[in-house]
Design a protein around this nucleic acid. Structure first.
Lengths: 238, 238
DNA sequence: GAGTGGTCTAGACCACAAA
DNA sequence: TTGTGGTCTAGACCACTCC
């Protein structure tokens, strides 16, 4: 703040920010190669990458592992108080949702999962791992853990669809009380691989613990969102 | 994931993580100098700094501008549905709160503020800028904007105390409906300076728009939290 | 004044993506 | 196969903190 010679990184950030704001680099578009950009700004790749890292932290650009840098699309609005599910939420906001199932199986529950679902030690749980897209972009990696006592024959259904709908249709269950825990953190290796980004990318971790209409703990979700993909909104009534 | 020779950065991260988890590096303690650490791990400062950057993204360590790297203390729990204020919230969790006023004045409202408070163009607002600590660590930079119509003589009071208490005691106002918007992003230069961290550090931006018991828009807060300092918890009733 | 973090240079090799 | 991003080396100077 003393001498008014701006740092190289700051200069690069400002230039790119301006180009993005003016629409010269529209959302979703790919930036030029790092080597090209470092020539444009007459600097080294290291310095350029630091600038891109700052823009990434701001949520203005994002990276796809080994594919390059892209301009971030607008954030999705996530409202924990509104009982909705991914497909409905995305569609309501005029975006296009998609879901891929990475895996689904019965497995021994970790200590953490036992605790969250109030299960005895050495219980088994259904685990469903999914990756979800908005307008084609991978933004969310989720692990669902279900108490198998409430969901016999679960693995026979189409798990690319909404679990909420499946619960209602096949098991007569719907969500009652829900608890959310949101923590800004980084992606671990499995989540990073599923989202095709580098390990350690900033993310928002959301843990949901769900009860049914009778107050029974039925399942929990571990969600990892790209940190620039959403915006959490909570309206507190009087 | 193919060849099992772990990257240097990964190795460094794992080693530091382990030391932290085992308590050899307790919360709040300072890490050795970067040059020392790069010797320990037989690598360059650039590589070492990348590893520290990843741990920072995870929220395990944090930086103070030009002072070094420290082990992050436990996160504070922030519950938007519980009507509380900073000092009470921090104290309830067994931590020690502190507040510093950076500045307070009457100023022209920006377009954004006018919109949030539903004020006509070219209105004036009170602006209060504060920095807040938990156990001595700077974790929050806030800008409060108050509709001056409801708060005559505001600047004459002690603004290091809770505004919530001041509203009740001096103006007979308390909060009614509140709207929260939470966005993972990076610190801008002013917030970074106030928190004594580098520009572009990851942060959680929380915007609160507050109404009083009569439903009138009375003020709004722009909060910038260190991303590793808190954990947002929402309990949704049935 | 010594030491530290902040910043930057000028390269290099490899593995993977895209053509 | 070509180019790209991912990773790493081996330094350098400056501004600031802390003694």
């Amino acid at each position: 703040m003393r001498d008014e010679a701006p740092r190289a990184v700051t200069t690069i950030c400002s230039a790119l920010e301006e180009q993005i704001e003016r629409g010269l680099l529209p959302p979703g578009s790919k930036l030029p190669a790092e080597r090209k950009l470092s020539e444009v700004f007459a600097t080294t790749r290291i310095t350029l990458r630091e600038a891109l890292g700052q823009l990434e932290a701001q949520g203005l650009v994002y990276r796809e592992e080994r594919r390059g840098w892209f301009v971030s699309p607008p954030r999705l609005t996530y409202n924990p108080l509104v009982r909705s599910h991914f497909h409905a939420m995305v569609a309501e906001q005029g975006r296009v949702p998609a879901t891929e199932v990475i895996g689904a199986r019965l497995m021994p529950a970790s200590a953490e999962i036992c605790q969250m679902l109030a299960l005895p030690a050495l219980s088994s749980v259904y685990q469903i791992r999914r990756a979800r897209r908005v307008d084609g972009r991978l933004v969310l990696y989720v692990e669902h853990y279900l108490n198998p006592a409430y969901f016999p024959g679960l693995l026979g259904f189409d798990l690319t669809l909404s679990l909420t709908d499946l619960y209602a249709r096949e098991y007569g269950l719907c969500y009652g009380r829900v608890r959310f825990d949101m923590v800004p953190t980084a992606l671990h290796s499995q989540a990073a691989a599923a989202l095709k980004v580098s390990v350690g990318s900033p993310a928002l971790r959301i843990v949901r613990v769900n009860r049914d209409q009778h107050g029974r703990l039925i399942d929990c979700d571990l969600e990892f969102w790209r940190h620039d993909a959403l915006h959490v909104c909570v309206e507190v009534p009087e």
